[in-house]
Simulated assay, not measured.
Amino acid sequence: MQSFRQPVDLTRATRLLNHGPVTLITSAHAGRSNVMAASWAMPLDFTPPKVVVVIDAKTLTRQLVEASGVFGLQLPTRGFARHTLAVGSNAGVEIDKFAALQLATFPAEKIDVPMLEGCVAWFECKVIPDDAQRHDLILAEVVACYADTRVYSDNRWHFGDDHDMRTCHYVAGGTFFETGDTFEVEAAPVSGTR
């Protein structure tokens, strides 16, 4: 299978998350792994790049992340939406979601966590210990980042006509919307001063 993944300069890693798509979090520890959907993920800092994700303390993913100190953060596509809904609707303590959904993975470069095929951006994250964790927030430094060249290059998203390659946003009840077309504008002129 041809790989379209290319490294993204870590100083530009947060640009991959700026448009607010649903994300998938992969985790592993002591021979056990899990994947979950997470709509609450955002960039936090540029240098070094940091992200914040919300992972409920009662989940298997949270247990694995706390035990290992690392996790994978991925941006799924519209073409992967059925799997995104399935991993978000089933608890990892009940089933092995990777096996049950026949999810294709590849090894991360700098952490020991499976990364998912069917996505267009991947972040390898190392947890930063912080008091925010008691509020289900996980702060992490991005230690490696890569994106699919078919939709991301020159530090910009460029979604084309293949709608299955667009990232998506989750609303509720199995409803998603896809990332739309881009457009550019110049800033309005500023007149006067305050």
Rank of each mutant, 00 (worst) to 15 (best):
G173Q: 10
E178T: 12
C168W: 06
R156F: 11
E141S: 12
D164R: 13
A140L: 10
D181W: 14
V151G: 01
T149C: 05
D148H: 07
A172K: 10
H158T: 14
C145F: 07
D161V: 04
T182V: 10
F159W: 13
F159I: 03
F177I: 12
T179G: 04
G160P: 02
G174R: 00
H169P: 01
V143N: 04
E184G: 12
V171G: 01
V171R: 13
F177R: 09
D154G: 05
D161K: 12
D181M: 08
E141P: 13
M165F: 05
F183D: 05
R166F: 01
E178A: 14
V171Y: 03
R150M: 08
T182E: 11
D161H: 11
E184I: 07
T149R: 10
H158S: 14
Y146E: 09
T182F: 14
A140E: 09
V151Q: 02
D164Q: 11
M165I: 00
D148V: 03
M165E: 13
Y152S: 05
F159K: 07
A172P: 00
G174Y: 00
R150Q: 15
E186T: 12
E184M: 07
G174D: 01
V171Q: 08
D154W: 04
F177A: 10
G174I: 01
A147Y: 05
A147W: 07
C168F: 11
F176E: 01
A147I: 06
M165C: 03
D181N: 13
Y146F: 06
W157D: 12
E184C: 01
D148I: 10
A147H: 02
T167A: 15
C168S: 06
R150A: 06
R150F: 09
H163Q: 02
E184T: 15
F177P: 00
T182H: 10
V171D: 06
V143Y: 13
T175A: 08
V143C: 11
G174H: 00
D148A: 01
C168K: 00
A140N: 09
A140Y: 13
A147Q: 02
V151N: 06
V151K: 05
D161S: 14
D181I: 10
G180A: 03
G174V: 00
R150L: 12
D161F: 02
D154A: 15
H163M: 00
D161C: 06
V185N: 03
V143P: 10
G160C: 09
T175G: 02
E178P: 03
V171L: 12
H163G: 00
T175E: 09
V142I: 14
R166V: 02
D148K: 03
G174A: 01
F183R: 07
Y152T: 04
V171M: 09
D162H: 08
G160W: 02
Y152L: 07
F159R: 05
F159E: 07
A147G: 10
E184L: 02
R166S: 07
R156G: 00
F177N: 04
G180K: 07
T175C: 08
R150S: 08
A144N: 15
R166H: 14
D164T: 15
C145T: 11
R150T: 14
F176I: 04
T182L: 06
V151W: 08
H158D: 14
